[in-house]
């Protein structure tokens, strides 16, 4: 009887002390999605939000990487993230002050909490930059959305810890550089 009582009391104590940690764990393991689904969802979201169409990419992008190995010094830099997914929206209308406010809310609904919002920037001249990250084994998935007045890009890359650290040091600048590298290889 006494032994049962002691066990019950210890169990009670353990439950009380462990409860906050277990609730955090439950929150962080929630919401796993299909591979690559978020990238497609973000592209689709931009299309519906701004009523625009993107130019098809993965095949062209991969072709670009292979060519880049022998073509230019700038292009070779793209190898730091190997294969990538890229959607380009060219010469379309992304203005509309009212629309910019809630595109961010819609990214949040689509990507969080599984993806971490690293940086969100909205500048009058440079446009909008949204960068989300997610750990993926020993690499890091990075999803970058850049929306200008007439153009937009959605880029998803996998970075190794060293390259990822560079992104963390200067999130906005590095997001733009990664996108510039991807789009310059593609051309």
């Amino acid at each position: 009887m006494r032994r049962t009582l002691i066990t019950l009391l210890l169990l009670l104590v353990a439950v009380i002390n462990a409860s906050p940690a277990s609730s955090v764990a439950a929150t962080t393991t929630a919401a796993t999605t299909e591979k690559g689904a978020e990238y497609s969802a973000v592209v689709k979201l931009i299309e519906t939000h701004y009523k625009v169409k993107h130019r098809g990419i993965p095949f062209v992008a991969n072709l670009g990487v292979k060519t880049a190995k022998v073509v230019s010094k700038d292009a070779r830099r793209v190898l730091r993230f190997g294969t990538f997914k890229l959607a380009i929206f060219e010469d379309q209308d992304f203005s509309g002050r009212d629309a910019t406010g809630d595109i961010r809310a819609r990214f949040r609904q689509t990507l969080e909490p599984e993806w971490h919002p690293l940086v969100a920037v909205r500048l009058e001249e440079e446009g909008q930059t949204y960068t989300y990250t997610k750990a993926d084994g020993d690499k890091f998935k990075v999803l970058i959305v850049i929306i200008g007045q007439r153009d937009a890009t959605v880029l998803q890359v996998n970075l190794n810890p060293e390259e990822f650290a560079k992104l963390l040091l200067n999130p906005e600048r590095e997001s733009r550089e990664l996108t510039n590298e991807a789009t310059s290889v593609e051309q």
């Binding site: 971490h116 940086v119 890091f140 060293e162 963390l168």
Partner: peptide, 27 residues
């Protein structure tokens, strides 16, 4: 403020992300 502002910068680096930065990185 985010709604009213014409420009916005929003950066979030939590502990998990900061741990990835190497112990020695000179800038």
């Amino acid at each position: 403020l985010a709604q009213k502002s014409s420009e916005l910068i929003d950066v979030n680096l939590d502990e998990n992300l900061l741990r990835i930065i190497p112990k020695k990185i000179i800038t």
